[in-house]
């Protein structure tokens, strides 16, 4: 039931955020998801663009208290409000780029191809990458604005983000799938972008939510996750450790399974897809709450009914 609702919301969000602009809708520059601004007619912009651009860290120190600074602050506050309202549901339920990855996963499953596995150690090592990307997309614009770094380094993350060449394809735009020979910087960026995009296609086909493991938006969200209204709780004393949560997690989070003391299990890679809650056979062992209001809890009966429906399919 929940997975079906999620699928519907994901698909509607994808269409809305990709084509909504054509109907004159624009939700601003603060969206906490990969609604790519390079898509002609998108219904809102990914906040990472603002963060690394003129409404973020590309403001010179002298302009911090000018209207540019005010705007940047306003956009950031709006990002925070949007994030606090839905927390990481943005990633698991709304992000169009996440939905695209889920389509590839569905295709792989239909073909009966096994998902690629990473060892626990590799998975731990990967976690740092998204913070490095986040740091880069803050430091480089600061250097452009204040230390004379070449302006072709502008929007460093967007220049290598695989969403930039891929998402505009849904509007028939292919121009970002090309090399820019203007100078060595633009050429390097576009070559890197093509390599990452090619690697991403392979990655998202063989691994669920491959890109999300490196997504700097998740890193940014995690910094503010404590102030979000959505909480993901585990009743540590009633978990029987069946491991379903770990196995069903698209990004291989094992903390929910292993946690025995801390009740808050919203980890840095979690995108609240709720698959772990759906597959938990313990009544109310896992639950997601809006403040103290229960949105969805694990239930043995729910899982049994879901499993029962698989027979004959």
């Amino acid at each position: 039931m929940i997975s079906k609702i999620r699928l519907i919301i994901q698909n509607i969000s994808f269409i809305f955020l990709t084509y909504g602009g054509k109907l004159g809708i624009h939700l601003g520059y603060s969206l906490p998801c990969f609604s790519c601004p390079y898509v002609g007619g998108c219904a809102g912009n990914c906040y990472l663009m603002a963060l690394q651009g003129n409404y973020g860290f590309e403001i010179a120190a002298a302009d911090v208290f000018s209207t540019w600074g005010e705007r940047a602050l306003l956009i950031f506050i709006l990002f925070l409000v949007l994030f606090m309202l839905l927390s990481k549901l943005w990633c698991g339920w709304i992000c169009p780029f996440g939905t695209l990855q889920d389509w590839f996963t569905s295709l792989r499953r239909k073909l009966g191809i096994a998902e690629t596995e990473f060892s626990w150690k590799t998975r731990d090592r990967q976690k740092i990458i998204k913070y490095i990307l986040l740091a880069a997309l803050i430091i480089i614009p600061l250097c452009i604005a204040n230390f004379g770094l070449h302006s072709d380094f502008k929007m460093p993350f967007c220049q290598i983000c695989p969403a930039k060449p891929i998402m505009p394809l849904f509007c028939g735009e292919t121009r970002h799938l090309s090399l820019d020979f203007t100078n060595s910087i633009t050429l390097s960026f576009t070559i890197l972008s093509m390599v990452i995009t090619g690697g991403l296609f392979v990655g998202i086909f063989f691994k669920d939510r491959f890109f999300c493991m490196f997504c700097p938006m998740l890193a940014l969200m995690h910094i503010f996750s404590k102030i979000g209204f959505i909480h993901f709780k585990k009743s540590v004393n009633t978990c029987q450790g069946c491991g379903n949560c770990k196995r069903m997690c698209p990004v291989d989070i094992r903390d929910v399974y292993l946690e025995k003391e801390n009740k808050d299990v919203l980890t840095e890679d979690c995108m609240l897809c709720l698959k772990c809650i759906e597959s938990c056979p313990g009544d109310s062992v896992l639950s997601v709450k809006f403040f103290n209001l229960n949105i969805f809890s694990s239930s043995r009966k729910y899982l049994a009914d879901k499993c029962g429906r698989l027979h004959g399919k």
């Binding site: 096994a114 029987q240 069946c242 379903n244 597959s279 899982l303």
Partner: peptide, 14 residues
């Protein structure tokens, strides 16, 4: 039956 062997990955390995 401590719980269902629920799955997401329908490959043989999954």
């Amino acid at each position: 039956f401590p719980g269902g062997a629920c799955y997401d990955d329908t490959s043989e390995h999954g």
